[in-house]
Design a protein around this nucleic acid. Structure first.
Lengths: 229, 229
DNA sequence: CGTGGCCTTGATAAAGTTCAAGAGCCGTGG
DNA sequence: CCACGGCTCTTGAACTTTATCAAGGCCACG
C-alpha cells in the first residue's frame, strides 16, 4: 500500500515526475516472500516483473541433477524478471528469496503502456538491460576463460571495491551460494581459500571474514597472469 | 547511401512509419569490413551501434593468453554493440567480421534522440536486448551445467530446428569457431563427433555435413539424462 | 606437386568433481 | 546447563572431464 514512498527511490524511476511516480504506484502490487520461498520458476508465464524493496533474491538456472548456477543476486532497488515483459515467452530462470524479502510487482500490460508514454522510463529500462548484458558477458568470460582461483579473486576484489577498497571483507553469502555464483562447488572454494591463505594473499578466519593482504597478487590471479601453486 | 532500402527490412524498425524509416536512414553511416577485420575491440569507446546488412560478424571475449569465447554470431538484420549506447562506458567485447560484411552504423546521440521520440522503436529495442539476455542465460547454463557433449547436441538440435527439423545439416562455421562458441577447443569437438557417430546418433562426412540419425538420443544428451561412452 | 589450412588421433597432464569422513558451531529442548 | 541434531565448512583420495602437446592425414589451391 505504501508503494508510493518506495517508487521515487528506485533507480529505474529516476528522472520521472511525481505524477508519473504516482501513476506507477497505482499499478503495482506488493508481495512478501520468506527465506527460500520460490518467486517464479523457469518456464513460468511471465505476466510482469519485480523490483526488490528489501531483502535479497537470487536468480538461477538448475541442471536436471540439481546443480545450480546463480545468474545474479539482487538487493533493494533492483528489478528482475523483465525479460518476458519485452521478449514474450517465459521466464528463462528461477527466482527465490534468500531471506525475508519485500518486492513490488508490475503487471506487464500496464507497465508496457506506461513505458510507451514515457521515453525516459524507456531509456532507464534500456540502461538496466544493457548493464545486465554487460554483467552476463563478464560471467560468460569468467566461466569460459578463467579458472576458479581467478573467478574467486575477481569476486573478492569486487567486494572490496564496493567498500572503497576496504581490505577487511565479510562474505554476504554462504560458501555454497558463492560456489554457485562462481560456477563451482563449495569444496573447491574451500580448497582455494586455503591455498590463497598459504600464499599470504588473504587471511581468513574460517568463517565469513577475509582480509586482503596482497591486492596486486589477487589482481594478477584475476587476470590470469599468475597461478596458485 | 542506399541505406533507406535496407531500413524497413530490419526487425528493429518494424512497425515504424515510412517517415521514421527515412529519418533513421538519414542518420546512419554505411561501412564495409573484410573477412577477419576488427569492427571494434573490448574497451573501445562506443559511440554508436551497428546492424548487419549482409555477411556475418562474431562478437567475442578474449583471455590474456589468446583463447576466445564467442558470445554470438550475427547475420543480416541483427544489431550489435548496443550496450554502450544505453549503459554508457565501453564495449564489453570484441567484434570482427567473419566474411566480407556490410553494416550500417547508428551514431549514439542521434539514435538516443530518435528512441526518445519513438515509443515503438524503444519497445523494439527492449525486445532485442531481452532476447539477447535470454540467449546469454542459455549460454551461461551450458557453460556451467552441461558437459561438452550436451552443448554440442544442443547446438545440432538448434541448427536442425532452424531448418524445420531437417535431419541433414551443414555446419555454417568452422570447427574452430564452433569450439569457441561452445566454450571448448577443436580437438574436443572432433572427438565428441566421433563418439556420437560411434553410437549412431549422427553420421558425419568428416567435413561440414552431419546427418541426425537419433534425435531423441541427442535430446537426452542435451538435457544431461544420457552420457556418451 | 608442394604448401598451408583444417581436421583427426593419441598420449599425457591439469583442473575440478565426487564421495566420504569429520570438525566446529548454534539453537532447541530436556 | 548441557546434550543432541542439524548446518556449514574442511580435508583427503579416487575419478572424470577436458586441455595440452605433438604428429600425421586430407584436400584445395597455387
Amino acid at each position: 500500500m505504501d508503494a508510493i514512498k518506495h517508487i521515487p527511490t528506485i533507480p529505474l524511476f529516476q528522472g520521472l515526475t511525481p505524477e508519473h511516480h504516482a501513476h506507477v504506484a497505482s499499478i503495482v502490487v506488493e508481495k512478501v516472500y520468506r527465506r527460500n520461498q520460490v518467486i517464479f520458476s523457469e518456464g513460468d508465464e511471465g505476466n510482469g516483473f519485480y523490483v526488490v524493496i528489501s531483502g535479497r533474491v537470487k536468480v538461477f538456472k538448475l541442471s536436471p541433477d540439481g546443480k545450480e548456477q546463480i545468474l545474479h543476486i539482487l538487493g533493494a532497488g533492483e528489478p528482475f524478471g523483465e525479460v518476458p515483459v519485452f521478449a514474450g515467452e517465459r521466464f528463462p530462470a528461477h527466482a527465490e528469496a534468500l531471506e525475508e524479502t519485500r518486492v513490488i510487482f508490475f503487471p506487464r500490460a500496464s507497465f508496457a503502456d506506461l513505458i510507451k508514454k514515457n521515453p525516459s522510463l524507456a531509456m532507464n529500462m534500456l540502461a538496466v538491460l544493457s548493464r545486465r548484458l554487460r554483467r552476463f558477458s563478464a560471467l560468460i568470460e569468467d566461466l569460459s576463460l578463467k579458472e576458479v582461483p581467478g573467478r574467486l579473486s575477481a569476486y573478492l576484489l569486487y567486494l572490496s571495491d564496493k567498500k572503497n577498497r576496504e581490505t577487511s571483507l565479510t562474505l554476504d553469502i554462504s560458501k555454497a551460494q558463492l560456489a554457485s555464483l562462481l560456477g563451482t562447488i563449495p569444496e573447491t572454494i574451500s580448497r582455494i581459500l586455503t591455498r590463497m591463505s598459504a600464499e599470504e594473499l588473504i587471511e581468513s578466519d574460517g568463517h565469513r571474514n577475509i582480509k586482503i593482504l596482497d591486492r596486486p597478487g589477487l589482481e594478477e590471479l584475476a587476470s590470469g597472469e599468475r597461478k596458485l601453486l
